[in-house]
Amino acid sequence: MSDTANMVRDAVGNLLADGDSVTLVKDLKVKGTSQTIRRGTVIKSIRLTADPQEIDCRYEGIKGLVLHAEFVKKR
């Protein structure tokens, strides 16, 4: 991984790392589905990507979910 991937920060400025759990700070509509992920939802075991503002994660019934770091807060 590059150095920029190690500097991913959440909505309040905390550093994120692979395997962290995060909480959504805003309701988010998921493109390509009719689902909305509600504020306060816990996403476990995130993975950092090459883009410093995107994190890859899994959520029930949604494959390949990518979230912007500005919408999550570290637990």
Rank of each mutant, 00 (worst) to 15 (best):
I37P: 09
I43D: 07
A11E: 09
S21M: 09
S2F: 11
H68A: 10
R38I: 10
M7D: 13
V25I: 15
I46R: 05
I55N: 03
E54L: 15
V12Q: 06
S2T: 13
E70S: 15
Y59E: 13
K74H: 05
G13F: 07
A11L: 01
E54D: 11
S21L: 03
R75G: 15
H68L: 12
G19P: 06
K44D: 01
E54M: 07
R9K: 14
I46Y: 08
D51N: 12
P52T: 08
C57A: 06
D3N: 15
R9Q: 12
P52A: 04
T36E: 15
K26M: 05
I37C: 02
L48C: 02
A11S: 12
E60R: 15
D20N: 14
T41V: 03
E54H: 09
M7P: 00
Y59K: 06
N14F: 02
L65D: 12
A50Y: 02
Q53Y: 12
V8E: 06
V30A: 01
D56V: 00
T23S: 11
S21C: 15
M1D: 10
M7Y: 13
S2A: 02
S45E: 14
R9L: 15
D20H: 13
K29R: 09
D3F: 14
S34P: 03
A5F: 01
L16V: 00
G61D: 13
S34Y: 15
I46H: 11
D51E: 14
T49Q: 01
L16W: 02
A11K: 09
R75T: 13
T33F: 00
Q35N: 13
K31D: 13
G61R: 05
Q53M: 10
R47E: 13
I55C: 00
A50V: 08
T41Y: 07
T33S: 05
G40R: 07
V8Y: 01
L67A: 02
H68T: 12
V12D: 03
I43W: 06
K74Q: 11
L28W: 00
A17F: 12
A69K: 05
R38N: 12
T36N: 02
L15G: 11
C57G: 05
R39I: 09
E70R: 15
K31W: 02
V30S: 01
V66T: 11
G32C: 02
I43R: 04
S45F: 08
T23P: 01
D56P: 00
S2N: 10
Y59M: 13
I43K: 03
T4R: 15
